[in-house]
Amino acid sequence: MTLLTLEKVDVFYRDLQATFGVDLSVGQGEAVAIIGANGAGKSTLLRAIIGLTPVRNGRVVLDGRDITGLRCDKIARAGVALVPEGRRLFGSLTVEENLLMGAARARPGPWTLAAVYELFPAMREVRYSLAGNLSGGQQQMVSISRALLTNPRLLLCDELSLGLAPTIINDIYTCFTRIRETGVSLILVEQDTVKARDVSDRLYCLLKGQVTLEGASSEIRMDAIKAAYFGETAA
């Protein structure tokens, strides 16, 4: 069953067109990766899905309901959550206060404070520290947990691996097995194409705002990704 469908979506970043007629779908419980170079329109697409950036043309449908043009907080309460690029924790709030903000307007569901502390036990030790004082890896755990606490049906993750050490990236992605067990659908935006292919069911490649490749992650060859990523004609 399809949870999210994008139909011919055009999004603008200020006056520049960032995506051109993007069609994309995410099934219930499915993990979809979006890869592409800097400026390919990946982050803008995520912002458009959750309503932070308006969709100029096209439609966004969540579980049969047209959410195009809906206000961000309403889309969030309909079950979409974002782990933003650069984590963007509330720096003057403590870790626990950040988590409480996620839980405050939450839908009913499996994720509670206790559940996210169990998912990332390291967070418990820093729960009363200011979020701004944490290391990058710790911040990423808090950012993921804050989004999970809203009990989303669709979790949008923007560049989870950005600026983190490889071992920490592996730790974080390991936890996604647990997260996916709850039935949540994922969209992972990644620059690390190998990682993106490994952790996803399906994969889209964006080039200059257009989908240049789409398919099951296990079936796509690396050279096809390379061609779609850089825009070379496929050999």
Binding site: I50, G51, L52, R71, C72, D73, A76, R77, A81, L82, P84, R88, F90, G91, S92, L93, M101, G102, A104, R105, A106, R146, A147, T150
Partner: peptide, 11 residues
């Protein structure tokens, strides 16, 4: 701190 993120949490 960050009003956009507050909106993505349903506020």
């Amino acid at each position: 701190d960050d009003f956009e993120i507050l909106e993505t949490l349903g506020f």
